[in-house]
Design a protein around this nucleic acid. Structure first.
Length: 884
RNA sequence: GCCGGAGUGGUGGAACUGGUAGACGCGCCGGACUCAAAAUCCGGUGCCAGCGAUGGCGUGCGGGUUCGAGUCCCGCCUCCGGCACCA
């Protein structure tokens, strides 16, 4: 056994041992209880960052713990390999995205392997391979056949200079990232997945997921956004035709307060009215500038323009003017809203700005209404009653809604309706590096499905995008094809699929690697995933899409799984400082934290920063998620090279609980390394002790079996042993509830307790157990508690100390409840709720005995000042509180 | 703007169901070892007052409930994540 802790050597040995024994290769075994532990697969961006290390270490701790609990564990890994960054890198380097992607995969796989994760690499997959994306295409066609996929127009960001569609990320302050040109909204045809058809089930089955964090379920429920309201129409005549301007409202009780209507710039009525109104057309054009992001829409200045056109109020028959508003979204609801300034905050602001009438129609008791300033209660559904509303006066929210909905129904203009906030999922991307949408456009036959036997539609891997649109559009070899129906020359669809498609079912494929179909029978053994682990940033989109695809796969008959992830752990983001400088065209250059010098203010916060390169100022953008695009990631490789994988793993686990956001700082990583080194040298000393004792017993070392009366015979050892099992109990409790930082703490406490033992032993020579035997028991606990976090060093020590067998096959240690027993317990003593000291009482003491004992204490009499206690509160095994 | 979360010593964090706030680390201070340094080991370390015993204050801010609040309730502030084409 080596004297020195040499992580590089230890880790190399342990890793090759696991490879040689195929320790982590999972086999379907109906006789064993399965446990499928999955971490969100990485985008191969180049190098691992700390978020990955955190994610996969958490997953590995859970994986290894469940192996110790006797489960048949599967932990796979693969690559979310399609996406925008590969195209950006390709533009920069003039090389194809495929090469960049595959190179990154090779490097990052090596990094993952060097961290010693217990991964079954035989199930590895990359979503950019035809073997994988073939099934994206295949299921897309099945969805198309079933009407789950359909075509309609959608709004995208358009860069007029590069003549290309931009991702939201590529729009900065309303301008294209490369050209600096003002971005326009453009409507183009796209394919959509009808996720709204599953809205009810996606919402309802959240209740069937007790293993998901409440916060994620709340976010998803709010995102799906089921609301009950009334859909109705405002009649109007145009070109001699009778039409209805339809709106949806959750506040039908305020219909009598409508003073204007607002419609989206893209609304057909707006388009029609603008034909004869150049000012309106100009305003509509203005509305079409800017980004399509909802956050921008919600924060921008609300603007509107009157059209001079009026519709008829369905209940009062009054004329109501129609406005075009830049804040009304065409893709949401009917693309039109009724304006009730008195009871909607946004309408109130709009009416104030443009001098529109404000008509109070709901009043709350004891509150007064004012036209000057908005009050929260104006929008309150609970306490108000209708006023100025004719026959509806005096009705409350529900009564008014029911009455008005009934009246609208009678005149055939509206009815109650359930409305969802959730919108259908637009999956078309006008980009190269993604799954080709398997359709062919034929002049004669229209959009034709690629026949199954011609799948996959192969993506050529040699193209290099140049920023001016999708290179597939210029590639004849890809474009030109024969129509599968009529055989005439036709054109292949060049849009590719959203990469969220790739990540919506990869967990199924991990369960069935190499399947001839999309998945096979092995899926029914492994699915659903027992524990899914990934960043909280995926709380809504990815998780919702994956749930949706799972349900589609079930409906198509591929599986019986309703929900893909039984338990979910959402780890907090790893954050770091962001530094940036704006270019002349409006583009942004990011600086890595180690490329800038900081100036702090008096509170220690970052005040300003300069680039080390040119000495010029850079802007400080605060802290945010580590990302390649913001250049604020930290490469864990430095840490691994310097300290080893075990230290990196221990540190990231120890420094924060999994679900909490983590501001990156390396201070303290030394402490993690010191702990492992201390563990190593302590174990080294113990090995010598065991050898000596073994020699004394004629070459036989035996551990000690503790009889029930043992604590009384060796009370000092009993105290140490109680401590060991207390820490074990805490570690077990904490690892089960996924609070791994305190599992690491418990391991440190265990070593501290063991370290103190030789000194105690020197003064108290007991015959049985010897202190070597107690150390032996303690070390067996410690190594196993620590093994999921730092598997390499514990693997080596387990072997060197001769515990027998392979540590990855060992069982999690069991708490000896006998070791925890005590005759006396300590109670906290309070006077009037203030801590004044403590006292020891026999375990068996009853309430009266505790009260009597407490009242005699100096620390109590001192503060009661002779007064008679009004009340004495005794919390068993915790405290006694004397109230005077 | 909307939805979700977080805020505890100089610092990362701990505190189980409302019951000793600051476990375990980092840093810092002092000591041992050393020619010296590093490493290691031992001790101390929330703030204020006090030689001390001890007392007061203290979990983002302001209120409340309770014998007792970091924990529960109400109202704010700041920061982080998401907002449908970053993944």
């Amino acid at each position: 056994m080596e004297q020195q802790y040499q992580p590089a050597k230890i880790e190399r040995n342990a890793q090759s041992h696991w490879i040689n024994t195929r320790a982590f290769n999972a086999k379907e075994d109906a006789a064993k209880k399965k446990y499928y532990c999955l971490c969100m697969f990485p985008y191969p961006s180049g190098k691992l960052h700390m978020g990955h290390v955190r994610n996969y270490t958490i997953g590995d701790v859970i994986t290894r713990f469940h192996r110790m609990r006797g489960f048949n564990v599967l932990q796979p890994m693969g690559w979310d390999a399609f996406g925008l960054p590969a195209e950006n890198a390709a533009m920069k380097e003039g090389a194809p995205p495929a090469k960049w992607t595959y190179d990154n995969i090779v490097y990052m796989k090596k990094q993952l392997q060097s961290l010693g994760f217990g991964i079954d690499w035989e199930r590895e997959l990359a979503t950019c391979t035809p073997q994988y994306y073939k099934w994206n295409q295949w299921l897309f066609l099945r969805m198309l056949e079933r009407g789950i996929v359909y075509k309609k127009t959608g709004v995208v960001n358009w860069d007029p200079v590069d003549q290309t569609v931009l991702a939201n990320e590529q729009v900065i302050d309303g301008r294209g990232w490369r050209t600096g040109a003002l971005v326009e909204k453009r409507e183009i045809p796209m394919y959509y997945m009808r996720i709204t058809q599953f809205a009810d089930e996606l919402l309802g089955s959240l209740d069937a997921l007790p293993g998901w964090p409440e916060r994620v379920k709340t976010m998803q429920a709010n995102w799906i956004g089921k609301s009950y309201g009334v859909n109705f129409g405002f009649p109007y005549d145009i070109d001699g035709e009778k039409k209805l301007l339809r709106v949806f409202t959750t506040r039908a009780d305020t219909i009598m307060g409508v003073t204007f209507m607002a419609i989206a710039a893209e609304h057909p009525l707006a388009t029609h009215l603008a034909e004869s109104n150049t000012r309106l057309q100009a305003f509509i054009d203005e509305c079409k500038r800017g980004s399509v992001m909802e956050a921008d829409m919600a924060t921008m200045e609300k603007k509107g323009m009157p059209t001079g056109f009026h519709v008829t109020h369905p209940l009062t028959n009054e004329k109501v003017e129609v406005w075009v508003g830049n804040y009304v979204l065409m893709g949401y609801g009917e693309g039109a809203v009724m304006g009730v300034p008195a009871h909607d905050e946004r309408d109130f602001a709009f009416a104030k700005k443009y001098g529109l009438a404000i008509k109070e129609v709901v009043r709350a008791p004891g509150k007064s209404f004012s036209l000057d300033a908005w009050q929260e209660w104006y929008a309150d559904k609970e306490s108000g009653r209708c006023v100025n509303s004719g026959k509806y006066d005096g009705l409350d929210y529900m009564q008014a809604t029911d009455a008005i909905a009934a009246d609208l129904k009678t005149i055939g203009l509206g009815d109650k309706q359930v409305q969802w906030r959730l919108r259908d999922w637009g999956i078309s991307r006008q980009r190269y590096w993604g799954t080709p949408i398997p359709l062919i456009h034929c002049a004669a036959c229209g959009d034709v499905l690629v026949p199954d036997d011609q799948l996959p539609v192969m993506l050529p891997e040699h193209l290099v995008p140049d920023g001016t649109g999708n290179p597939l559009n210029k590639n004849a070899a890809f474009l030109d094809c024969a129509c599968p129906k009529c055989g005439k020359p036709a054109r292949r669809e060049t849009d590719t699929m959203d990469t969220f498609v790739d990540s919506s079912w990869y967990f199924f494929r991990f369960a069935t690697p190499g399947a001839n179909e999309m998945i096979d029978a092995r899926a029914s053994y492994w699915m659903p995933v027992d524990q899914y682990i990934g960043g909280i940033e995926h709380a809504i989109l990815h998780l919702l899409y994956a749930r949706f695809w799972t349900k589609v796969m079930r409906d198509v008959g591929l599986s019986k799984t309703d929900e893909p992830f039984t338990n979910l752990l959402t780890q907090g983001m790893v954050l770091n400082h962001i530094f940036q400088r704006r270019g002349e065209k409006g583009g942004i250059t990011y600086f890595a934290p180690d490329e800038v010098t900081l100036v702090h203010d008096t509170e220690g916060k970052v005040a300003s920063a300069r680039a080390k390169g040119d000495g010029l100022p850079v802007d400080y953008d605060g802290i945010g998620t580590m990302s390649k695009s913001k250049r604020n990631g930290v490469d864990p490789q430095d840490l691994i090279d310097k300290y080893g994988a075990d230290t990196a793993r221990f540190f990231i686990i120890f420094t924060s609980p999994p679900e909490q956001t983590l501001e990156w700082s390396e201070s303290g990583v030394d402490g993690s390394f010191r702990f492992l080194r201390r563990l190593w040298s302590f174990a080294h000393d113990l090995a010598a002790l065991i050898q000596a004792e073994s020699a004394k017993r004629g070459g036989n070392y035996s551990s000690y079996t503790y009889p029930p009366d043992w604590p009384k015979r060796a009370p000092i050892f009993a105290a140490v042993r109680r401590e060991l099992h207390t820490h074990l109990r805490q570690a077990t409790y904490d690892i089960e509830r996924h609070q791994f930082n305190t599992v690491a703490s418990a391991a440190m406490k265990l070593l501290n307790a063991l370290s103190g033992l030789p000194k105690i032993a020197a003064a108290n020579v007991a015959k049985e157990p010897t202190h070597t035997q107690l150390l032996h028991e303690g070390m067996a606990i410690l190594l196993r508690v620590l093994s999921p976090i730092t598997p390499h060093v514990t693997h080596a020590l387990w072997k060197d100390l001769g515990f027998g067998g392979d540590l990855v096959e060992a069982e999690w240690p069991v708490v000896d409840s006998l070791a925890l027993e005590q005759d006396e317990i300590e109670l906290v003593v309070q006077v009037n709720g203030k801590m004044r000291g403590s006292m020891r009482v026999p375990k068996t003491a009853n309430q009266a005995e505790i009260e009597t004992a407490a009242l005699k204490l100096d620390i109590v009499t001192k503060f009661t000042e002779g007064k008679v206690p009004r009340k004495i509160i005794v919390v068993p095994a915790r405290l006694v509180n004397v109230v005077v």
